[in-house]
Design a binder for these strands. Structure first.
Lengths: 180, 180
DNA sequence: CCTAAGTAAGTATCTATTTACTTATAGGCT
DNA sequence: AGCCTATAAGTAAATAGATACTTACTTAGG
């Protein structure tokens, strides 16, 4: 294990790719920058990931898997879960950003790793009411957790003395009321 | 007013730009395609809008203004308003898409036209509770209205027999409960 | 006939991808 | 053990195609 460590290089490239694509998206992301940031080489990227889209998809999957690990589905306490999702998005904004970008630029990419969350749907089913189905409930909770990240900046600026604490509380309270 | 109509050409370019940027984003959007789709010319785009970012910002502002006109703020009945917002996003997905893209690629662009919505904050103030402030409430409502457009595709696929009608009802119901 | 709308054909730069090359390292052979 | 070599890791430089933006020109119409 000297300077030649395939796994380590691969991991560095993946990490740099997440940063780059989260910041600039797929078509805005630059292979050269990723190679430089990873202290590696353009050629290695193609050796490991085939092409740009392969790299993007790998970075995306990696990010989703990481999220699924850090914020495991918790159907028994959905208000608590929205709080944890909120925290995660504050802690790791790159994950949400690359997901949003994937949604816009490559909507068909990496729907796979989502299986973890899908498994939760059934458990939620019982909490769902006739007015709001299980999947719709999850979709809404997911949206509430990231609401402040997709809200127009101009709107947020209106909140002169806002803190992430009060926002988090608002998200939890909203989901609590939805379930009431 | 023959074939030479500056206003009409400008409008065609703007419309084509909205379509293009909504589909591919700022850095993915192609000036040549916009010129072709507008049945105009690359040179005209630069004559009217200066450069690519000028064109993007113009298309974005135009879209936001159109939204503000079609779905006017209605603080007195927020559940009804979320329903109308939901309908608007179904009717004109380009507007939401270009807004999301602006959020990611050019977060500082075009916060101006949002003033219309900001004016509503005060009216909402009274409906806000200590747990959820006025701005946060608007942010959440805004997020719920577009929830199905930012939800991972894989999650939506789980909803085998979903319709926009039931989704709309879910959004309205969710906001109703939040306000209860 | 003069101004502004419109057109066509560049140009310089950028960027994904490849080709041709160098160096480290694991493992078989003596 | 110590050499030798096949293979995988790493590098540098070229290429081919896009793409934002310009320059030089043409034509409509008041």
């Amino acid at each position: 294990m000297g300077q030649r460590d395939a796994e380590a290089t691969r991991a560095r490239i993946l990490s740099a790719a997440l940063t780059e694509f989260a910041a600039h998206g797929y078509s805005g992301g630059r292979i050269d920058r990723i190679a430089r940031d990873a202290a590696s080489n353009v050629r290695m990227i193609y050796a490991y990931f085939g092409n740009k889209s392969g790299l993007f998809d790998a970075a995306l999957s990696d990010a989703i898997v990481r999220m699924a690990e850090e914020v495991p589905p918790e159907p028994s306490d959905l208000p608590a879960w929205v709080g944890e999702l909120f925290d995660f998005h504050e802690r790791r904004p790159e994950v949400l950003r690359i997901c949003l970008w994937a949604q816009l630029e490559r909507p068909d990419a990496a729907s796979e790793p989502l299986g973890t969350y899908l498994a939760k749907v059934e458990s939620v089913q019982q909490q769902a009411s006739p007015a709001i189905g299980a999947v719709d409930l999850l979709v809404i909770i997911y949206a509430v957790a990231q609401a402040w990240h997709v809200a127009p900046v101009g709107l947020l600026a209106a909140d002169t003395h806002a803190s992430s604490t009060t926002r988090r509380a608002a998200a939890v309270e909203a989901v609590t009321r939805i379930l009431a």
